[in-house]
Design a protein around this nucleic acid. Sequence first.
DNA 1: TGATATTTTGACAACGTTGTCAGGAGTTGA
DNA 2: TCAACTCCTGACAACGTTGTCAAAATATCA
Lengths: 369, 369
Amino acid sequence: MVACQVAICYNGLSYRVIDTLVTTLTTDDDMSARAPTMRDVAAIAGVSIKTVSRVINDEPGVSSELAERVQAAVKLLGYRHNSAASNLRRADGRTATIGLLLEDAANPLFSALHRAIEDVAWEHDTLVFAGSSDADPEREKKIVLALSSRRIDGIIVVPAIHDHSGLVYMQRLGRPIVFVDRLAALPDADSVTVDNRVGGSTAVAHLVAHGHRRIAFLGDLHSIWTAAERHLGYIEGLASAGIQLDPHLVYQDIRGSVAAEFATLDLLGSANPPTALFTAQNLITIGAIRALQRLELQHKVALVGFDDLELMDLLDPGVTVIAQNAAKLGRTAAELLFARLGGDRAPPQHVVVPTRLIARGSGEIRLSS
Amino acid sequence: MVACQVAICYNGLSYRVIDTLVTTLTTDDDMSARAPTMRDVAAIAGVSIKTVSRVINDEPGVSSELAERVQAAVKLLGYRHNSAASNLRRADGRTATIGLLLEDAANPLFSALHRAIEDVAWEHDTLVFAGSSDADPEREKKIVLALSSRRIDGIIVVPAIHDHSGLVYMQRLGRPIVFVDRLAALPDADSVTVDNRVGGSTAVAHLVAHGHRRIAFLGDLHSIWTAAERHLGYIEGLASAGIQLDPHLVYQDIRGSVAAEFATLDLLGSANPPTALFTAQNLITIGAIRALQRLELQHKVALVGFDDLELMDLLDPGVTVIAQNAAKLGRTAAELLFARLGGDRAPPQHVVVPTRLIARGSGEIRLSS
DNA sequence: TGATATTTTGACAACGTTGTCAGGAGTTGA
DNA sequence: TCAACTCCTGACAACGTTGTCAAAATATCA
């Protein structure tokens, strides 16, 4: 039994009272205190560590009297549970954390998706690690490695084009994976997307219904699944309307609004320009609108964009869009993940979240004959 | 020594080869495998656990021959480091994680801030837990508790109005705290804000320079520090111009774009309406523009907003704003935090990130006499 | 009152790492 | 050839919990 020379001494452990908290002395003179542990709580409450654990974890088999003493000690010490220690020893291996791998956390679609996932995780007392891959396979690989070393319970991924060895590893350890905004790239994984192809053909059908037949397509990298699907939707939409595809009206692999602006200027400056545009990604829509405004054609050339953005209703004309429901995408992905974590053994499923055409003016400009 | 009945047996531990990975058998028939540990790597490499640890952590004092054997075993097993075990035993208590407490992860300012912080953290091999408080003190408290139980290394906070006992606890354990977009609410904490007051007076000065003297203020909840500061800037701007404040032109405690739209309609429908508006928050700016468009006054009533948004340049007129640099706010906050984590003992500091007036048309509408 | 059953409590091992320290092997110099 | 020194390697304890299991205390019944 060590000799005690400070304010409080319990069973050989020394404590100093600071404000209303009792702080465990460290062995050196460093003023930062060691975090109180169950051992400290046990010492002050006069019970065993196991009894403290039972109280902290709300397990049965503790008398009321002892439970009250433990809770008083917890409050006195300001005890905080240590997740690392708990995770290391618990039988189910759960960490109450999930990973979320986005392209870019600042992107409006992904930040809305992130928030929806956080809200579902919150209901399951789970924290979210979020990371941005920038569609860079090396960065994504490293993020997945960092997440797997922390033994997260599961992961929701907007995958970049890359190998999935890191995700395979998690899956092998029984960690569920949900792909979002992309198809599942692994056999035993759920996925959630909007119906990009239907959205694409809806955009084309809408423009056709307003008299247009020379409809241009401006899309993102064709290697991105969503871009490829929207392109297919464009093709199917034309075919449904009996319109022959004009390759001069198809611009793919456009990255960013500046490239989109130039692509639009190029299109509209050609010999037989389109009378309508389908801009299959937000930044492309922005660039196209800049080009239309520059040419003062925003009231003459029709435009339907893919996905919505704040203020699009305030533009002149308002922008007609195929809107994605980011919150529902995120919520559905999270619910699928937590269903798996809850024991769901059903075959993997692919959930399609519908898009919605929002008519605001730009897509309702009729072809003038 | 246990009898081995499967493909590989090393020092009493049994393994089964699956694909190119060797998977440690579990004791039951469950097909999900136990994650390989250093013990398994040691068994296959024929070295001690400590030698494996030295190789994994790039510590000196291991011969090349043994290092190669360990690395081959790591690859064979697909070994992944266990952060919980490491964190529990390491002397410095570091977890290579930080917390980020925002109002709403989907908000464009905060998602841009989040991304900037993630990028700085990435350079420090650190993951980010992000949470949204919705400015709800109870939810914030619970998030802080969840973060502190995971022993995060530090935290960046956009605080709601609440008590800081949870943050005090982290600080007491030596975890640095940085407040962002708000002043520091604790003595030993750094903080980063934009200069809201200067931005406010700049907005007013700009409108005065274009002939306006009846300038309205529309602001968020006055209990939010940024809103209060922008209001003070408005008052100071008027005083600098020798303009007497008209209380009828001041609308505070506006929440959301719909409320802002009605407030603007109310203002403009009054007996002596303003000729210019200073809308001190983004959603308020959006609501005010809707009102102006509805009244067809968007070319007659001048407007300067606070903070920028995608597409504001494409509106007619383009929206003049006092823009915040969310990425710099986030980057600066993260750099302050990592400086503390790196041992910086300087007195706490408050960094002010300048705002920038972006003239696009709406703030340059001159008063017509 | 004593035997039996149930509840409460606590001892102890275990999780997977890291840090400390000791022992063995190899090298060098007298 | 031997002593001293340096390097490499490994044994073992420790971190703070949880899970298992046994002992002690309490309650019940004959």
